[in-house]
Design a protein around this nucleic acid. Structure first.
Length: 422
RNA sequence: GGAGAGGUGGCUGAGCGGUCGAAAGCGGCGGUCUUGAAAACCGUUGAACUGAAAGGUUCCCAGGGUUCGAAUCCCUGCCUCUCCGCCA
């Protein structure tokens, strides 16, 4: 959520900033509503001030055995008027809040201006694509041949866009999870968490999934509960309604969680394989930072996510999302895209964002500065990494002509010393 | 699931329907003392909105209600604790 003051004082500036996201917004109704709301509030507050005055006067008069009929009568009217006006105020306030909750974050000045993913800016590449003396197979073919991925049986159990990992496939997923968590807790100073993966409406609103994107979520029947689409939801909302001490910042948390997405808007895309599933595992990285240092932390977070791919020896590139491709809550986002040889393309494997105070305002996450002031802090998060897509990258990049898969050195201890699959 | 108790400021914990943003203690901050620290003592210390300021309004889990007036009474929901039952 954008700061109300900022919106009122710099409306034009914010309008242009948001327009760069390629979305249509109409502020006129809101401006009207906002003015109306303030006027109403002032009137109500005036009446309440009178009410408060009277509640001091009444007992005084009572004590002095003076008559109070007139003041009681007046107060009865005041009280009625207040409840009437408050009804109006509630309606207007709800409309205004909904509008504000529907506004995306303002892009950071360093974000490239652009219409869509075509305009994203490549920041750097690491390593180089492997060369093959044969035509590399897709991960779904490899997975099936090696009997480590089973999409048909997953469909029988659940439906389309689910996967059943088998044998060494399951082992590989688990090895990656442990490797990533060990790396982030051991070398990068994150605290490991194991949070709930069902979250309530308040939390979903806090991180920005709601109210706009309810259709993308799995909602539990008979409850106002949702399956989390990302570990960001529990890890960020764990500090909702809290005032943290500046000395405790930055806080860094990591967690493995399953993520659940309905992916309703993506028919026909990635229908095969485990790139786009309704359920997948992700190791999430979340940071809480002071505003002054949040962009420095974003670079740090990004490099921590990158180090996973570097240690695995997987070629990737980093891109900066342009304004038109930027997510709803983010002020700036770097995507890490890993090379997939079978499709001869880069695919997103991590998304690292600075949300500035956008989520902190929604979720009321604040900190007390060393000077004693209470301010909203900045939240950041990124994948470190999407585990299923890392399996994809390993299968496709490490495949050999005989159909076997070489296991990266750093992963071998986690695979019981195994050097290859198949 | 059944029975009971409770949810108050950073924490612990008082609080007759009006003078309660709320006692007290702890913690934090500032100071005195000290070479420095501790102890002791003194002072100070919630947040949001609104206003140029003075000030005003709101917030004692959330939402309703009673009342001229609610932290205090009533209802609903959520959460916590104790006991019983069930269970991985």
């Amino acid at each position: 959520m954008l700061a109300l003051k900022r919106l009122r004082d710099n409306l034009d500036q914010i309008k242009t900033g948001l327009a760069s996201r390629q979305i249509d917004l109409h502020f006129d109704a809101w401006v009207k509503g906002d003015t109306q709301q303030r006027k109403l509030k002032q009137r109500i507050e005036g009446l309440k001030a009178r009410q408060n005055q009277a509640s001091q006067e009444i007992p005084k008069r009572k004590k002095a055995k003076e008559a109070i009929d007139d003041i009681l009568k007046e107060m009865k009217d005041v009280s009625e008027e207040i409840s009437e006006l408050e009804g109006d105020l509630k309606t207007i306030e709800e409309e205004n809040t909904n509008f504000l909750l529907g506004l995306p974050n303002l892009p950071h000045p360093s974000v490239p201006i652009g219409k869509n993913e075509q305009d994203n800016e490549e920041i750097r590449r690491w390593g180089s694509p492997p060369t093959f003396a044969f035509k590399p197979l897709s991960h779904w073919d490899l997975g099936e041949t090696l009997d480590i991925l089973d999409f048909e049986r997953a469909a029988k159990i659940s439906g389309a866009r689910f996967v059943l990992y088998k044998g060494l496939g399951a082992r590989l997923e688990r090895a990656l999870i442990n490797f990533m968590l060990d790396l982030h807790t051991g070398e990068h100073d994150y605290t490991e968490m194991l949070p709930p993966i069902i979250a309530n409406r308040t939390s979903m609103t806090g991180t920005g999934q709601l109210p706009k994107f309810e259709d993308d979520l799995f909602k539990l029947k008979d409850n106002d509960y949702f399956l989390i689409p990302t570990g960001e939801v529990p890890l960020t909302n764990m500090h909702a309604d809290e005032i943290l001490a500046e000395a405790d910042l930055p806080l860094s948390y990591t967690a493995l969680t399953p993520c659940f997405r309905r992916e309703s808007g993506s028919y026909g895309q990635d229908t095969r394989g485990l790139v786009r599933l309704h359920q997948f595992n992700k190791v999430e990285l979340v940071k809480f930072s002071t505003p002054e240092r949040s962009y420095e932390r974003l670079e740090q977070l990004l490099s921590e996510a990158e180090s996973v791919l570097q240690k695995l020896g997987l070629h990737y590139r980093v891109i900066s999302l342009c304004t038109g491709d930027l997510g709803f809550s983010a002020a700036k986002t770097y995507d890490i895209e890993v090379w997939l040889p079978a499709q001869e393309t880069y695919r997103e494997i991590s998304s690292c964002s600075n949300f500035e105070d956008f989520q902190a305002r929604r979720a009321k996450i604040r900190y007390r500065t060393s000077a004693g002031k209470v301010e909203h802090l900045h939240t950041l998060n990124g994948s470190g990494l999407a585990v299923g897509r890392t399996v994809v990258a390993i299968l496709e990049n490490m495949q050999q002509e005989d159909g076997s898969i070489l296991i990266p050195k750093v992963l071998q201890p986690y695979m019981g010393g195994l050097e290859k699959i198949g």
